[in-house]
Design a binder for these strands. Structure first.
Lengths: 116, 116
DNA sequence: AGAATATATCCGCATTTCCGAATATTAGAA
DNA sequence: TTCTAATATTCGGAAATGCGGATATATTCT
């Protein structure tokens, strides 16, 4: 029993990565990077329907990326693993590098053709 | 023009994260962490149909996470941004922490009930 | 109990993603 | 050119995912 366990672990790894692979959830995670916030606050900052925000929060909660504390009628959400933001930052910097390299490439082609 | 641009960036960020949110692609990225490999080698190590491997490689290539060099009939793939593995490592360690905490919790419940 | 507020879940529908067999393309050898 | 090996792409269908209005649940206040 080695192959199946590796496969399962990889599937879980992917499931966890998938949790952070959505624009709304990325926004939620960065919002929570500032500290805990309740649902209404998150709805306010993301400007999305409450059902949408709750649905995404549930996805993060199911994967233990966020934790909840109820206070009266409010439910506060907070990051369980702030390192997740570091992972997101890496991917974001890769994206930016990519973007600038693409535009450099575009310029290179443009000027090369322009000069002939 | 600020909201729309932020939205676009977040969408791109998510698209990039989605590239790493699949078990096959995670396996591919870690395989390439050892150095460049051609498709047949990857098919050999992952034990998946060639079409499947090529399809996933295309997804990584489209997002510039891997680059290709042709040598004869072989096409070698390599990582463009090895930092991506660091991001994957973070998520993996979060997963492991989660797993051990879940089993601690399971034990705690088990023993608590056992002692009653 | 009844009203009000905050949050979670349900539902139907549209879109995306994945799979793998089959097929197309590419490069080198005969 | 024809054959062969390596890789890429296409196709149809199954499964997963996202959306947001409507509704359910939970908590507090009166």
């Amino acid at each position: 029993m080695d192959k199946p366990k590796n496969y399962e672990l990889r599937a879980m790894h992917a499931t966890l990565c998938q949790a952070i692979a959505d624009p709304t959830r990325i926004a939620l995670l960065y919002e929570l990077g500032d500290g805990r916030k309740h649902v209404s606050q998150l709805v306010g900052s993301l400007q999305l329907p409450q059902a949408t925000v709750s649905r995404h929060l549930k996805i993060l909660r199911d994967r233990s990326l966020v934790a909840t504390e109820r206070e009266g009628t409010f439910v506060y959400y907070s990051l369980v693993y702030p390192e997740v933001l570091a992972a997101l930052d890496i991917m974001r910097s890769v994206m930016h590098t990519n973007l600038s390299e693409q535009s450099s490439l575009a310029n290179a082609i443009y000027f090369t053709q322009g000069e002939g």
